[in-house]
Amino acid sequence: MRLKAALVFCLLAGMVVAVAGFAQEGHPLTGVWYGDWGAANATQRNHLTIEMNWDGKEVKGLVNPGPDSFPLKVVTLDSSKWTVHIEADGKDDKGMPAHFVADGKLDNIGSYNRTITGTWNYGTSKATFKLRRD
């Protein structure tokens, strides 16, 4: 049992190191971003994963890759201010269709664990989001 636990631990540790090793120094938005969104003062926030990829002309990607994923519709980066604008059509936390508009600020650009924080709005609801690139 202890051996099994040690093996699992080693496997997980190896995965963490491997992920950390995949540094990405190209387009600042390319990569998989993890975080959450929700009302600014909410105790329970919604998990958020965004996968983005720069193809040389535009950024494409998915929100929450998996069975409930939906594609990014618009992603723009203003590199003069390092601000990011994202739009996507998906489902809100109640499963209803929603048009998401996110505006955020890219920080810690030199790190592959850079972050984006900002507002995450849909319909009349206003929320905040934070993402960290892993």
């Binding site: 120094e25 980066l77 590199s79 390092w82 650009i109």
Partner: peptide, 17 residues
């Protein structure tokens, strides 16, 4: 534009692999 901005950023914030 993004590459120039990133280049300028790196000139002041070295974090080279």
């Amino acid at each position: 534009p993004w590459a120039k901005a990133l280049y300028d950023y790196r000139r002041n914030n070295e974090f080279e692999p």
